[in-house]
């Protein structure tokens, strides 16, 4: 019994790694980049604002990974959703734009979901294919052109606005993380997601509707990517096919570093939030260090590799 105790403390340390890593990287940048303005309130706020879309995608991905699935297509969904919103707003109105953006996300997510849950295709291949498919669709939608988003209500709500002096991007992040956390940890659905990813057969014979769970997690990923698309469009005041393009690695790394198992059954929404901010801080610090873009990519790739290796250490088989 004593042995079991100490072992579970061991796995607890594993869960704290994201926080330890967060502090370590923060302190490193705080010391080395002090004169470059890393610690200024403006820079720190900027990090939070820039990571908002990635954090929201990470919340969705926690559900997919926990259910034993993966979504690789969310970056492309972001672009399609942002472009749909921007085009709809140009032609109709701001509410129609919002609905179009979110609906695009939900629809593509549900499309992935049907293929995975009911046609029983592996989510890795399905979303690899839809990633390419919708990246292409995003390019054809507007002939590679960028669409300006000028509606001030929209850019306020989804971009630069504030409510009680809290930036709206922070509010959206908080909403997604809090709802995500509650659903994940405190509802039947969350328990069924974990059971499905842990042991799908056990879930099935226990009466859990496994295909439905798989359908929902991929739809949730799509919905989160749709919202992320709106936030990109709001903050940048434009939509373009490149939006979300470079988020795939960052978001997956954020979720894994945050303690979610790649093969299902275990995860944390709060961990994904911290992981995502950590990735944002890393991007920011490397830029402030004046590294060339190519060097940034190399360093970031290496750090992510290290972080993921540490995070996955105990799930080795």
């Amino acid at each position: 019994m004593e042995r079991l105790r100490s072992r579970s403390i061991g796995t607890d340390i594993q869960q704290w790694i994201v926080y330890i890593g967060f502090l370590a990287i923060f302190l490193f940048f705080a010391l080395t980049l002090h004169d470059d303005g890393f610690l200024t309130q403006r820079n720190l706020t900027n990090i939070i604002l820039q990571t908002a879309p990635a954090t929201i995608m990470a919340v969705g991905l926690v559900f997919a990974l926990s259910a034993g699935e993966i979504d690789l297509s969310f970056g492309s969904i972001v672009a399609v959703a942002a472009l749909s919103a921007a085009v709809a707003m140009q032609h109709y109105s701001m509410p129609i734009g919002v609905i179009a953006g979110l609906a695009a996300g939900v629809f593509i997510g549900a499309f992935n979901g049907v293929l995975v849950a009911y046609l029983k295709l592996p989510s890795f291949l399905v979303t690899l294919a839809t990633m390419g498919l919708f990246a292409g669709i995003a390019r054809t939608m507007t002939d590679l052109r960028s669409i300006p988003v000028v509606n001030e209500t929209f850019t306020g709500i989804f971009g630069s606005g504030k409510l009680f002096s809290i930036p709206s991007l922070v509010i959206w992040t908080a909403i997604a993380v809090i709802i995500g956390h509650l659903v994940y940890r405190h509802t039947k659905f969350g328990a069924h997601v974990l059971a499905t990813g842990d042991n799908a057969r056990a879930a099935q014979v226990s009466g859990i509707k496994v295909p439905r769970v798989r359908f929902y997690v991929l739809t949730i990923c799509g919905a989160c990517a749709g919202l992320a698309g709106l936030l990109y469009a709001g903050r940048l005041q434009a939509a373009k096919y490149t939006l979300g393009e470079s988020d795939l690695m960052t978001v997956i790394a954020a979720v894994i570093v945050g303690g979610t198992a790649l093969n299902g059954g275990k995860g944390s929404v709060m961990g994904a939030l911290v992981g995502s901010v950590l990735m944002g801080m890393l991007n920011n610090g490397l830029i402030l260090m004046n590294l060339k873009v190519s060097d940034q990519m190399i360093v970031r790739g290496l750090i992510i590799l290290l972080a993921v290796a540490i995070s996955l250490r105990d799930t080795k088989r």
């Binding site: 328990a191 974990l194 059971a195 842990d198 042991n199 056990a202 879930a203 059954g265 275990k266």
Partner: peptide, 8 residues
Amino acid sequence: DLALADQQ
């Protein structure tokens, strides 16, 4: 083969 979810 036990129908338990191992990580729960």
